[in-house]
Computed example of a mutant assay.
Amino acid sequence: MDLHIGSVVVGADDVARAVRFWCAALGYRPRDEPQHDWAVLTCDEAGRPNVSIMLTEARPQPLPRLHLDLYATDQAAEVERLLGLGAVRVDWPRYPENPDFVVLADTEGNLFCVIDTTF
């Protein structure tokens, strides 16, 4: 079978703002010139999926069924770096005791987790 994830699509009110955030957060770059309603971000490292940004009027879900997990070997440093790029901490009501993840929202309000891979 030759089926694989080629791109994860993230909704945005402001595609240009989302492109700036996710490029800085992940070290990706636009594959082509971003459009006002669509952009595909790519990474030069083999095996990394694209992240596509799609203009949408839909509001982010407070408890999304699908989200990104970003793996970090230095979670605290990455969380601070992402906050500096415009992410915000989320008061997540479902943290377990001693969580290995921190919930943040991107500049568009989409939730994602930063996972501590040293656990």
Rank of each mutant, 00 (worst) to 15 (best):
F101T: 15
N98V: 01
G84L: 03
Q61I: 01
A25K: 06
W92F: 11
Q75W: 02
D100T: 13
W38Y: 14
L26M: 11
A16H: 05
A105C: 07
V114I: 07
W22V: 04
A12M: 01
C23F: 05
D37G: 11
V51P: 02
D100M: 11
D44K: 10
V103R: 15
H4M: 15
E45T: 11
P49S: 14
N98S: 11
E97Q: 12
W22R: 01
T118L: 11
T107D: 10
R48W: 06
E78P: 02
L3D: 12
V51I: 05
E33R: 15
Q61R: 09
D106H: 01
E45Y: 05
L3W: 05
E57H: 14
F119G: 15
V88L: 13
A72E: 07
C23R: 01
V102A: 14
F119E: 14
A58Q: 07
E108C: 01
G47F: 01
R20Y: 01
P99V: 03
D13Y: 13
V103M: 13
D106I: 03
I53M: 01
L55C: 01
A12W: 02
A72T: 06
F119H: 15
D106Q: 11
D69N: 12
A16V: 07
D116S: 02
A72K: 08
N98R: 07
R65W: 04
L66C: 04
V15M: 03
R17D: 05
P49R: 06
M54F: 09
F112D: 10
P96K: 09
R17H: 08
V19A: 06
M1F: 04
R29V: 07
H4Q: 10
R31N: 08
R20T: 13
L3Y: 09
F112C: 11
D32I: 10
L68S: 00
L111Y: 13
I53A: 01
V10W: 00
D14R: 09
L66N: 04
A39C: 15
A77E: 11
D91M: 02
Q75C: 02
G6N: 14
R59H: 06
G47P: 00
P60H: 03
A12Q: 01
A58Y: 10
D100I: 13
L66D: 05
Y95E: 09
D106R: 03
D37C: 13
G84A: 07
D69G: 00
D13G: 12
D100C: 04
P34N: 03
R20V: 04
W22P: 03
E97K: 10
I5D: 05
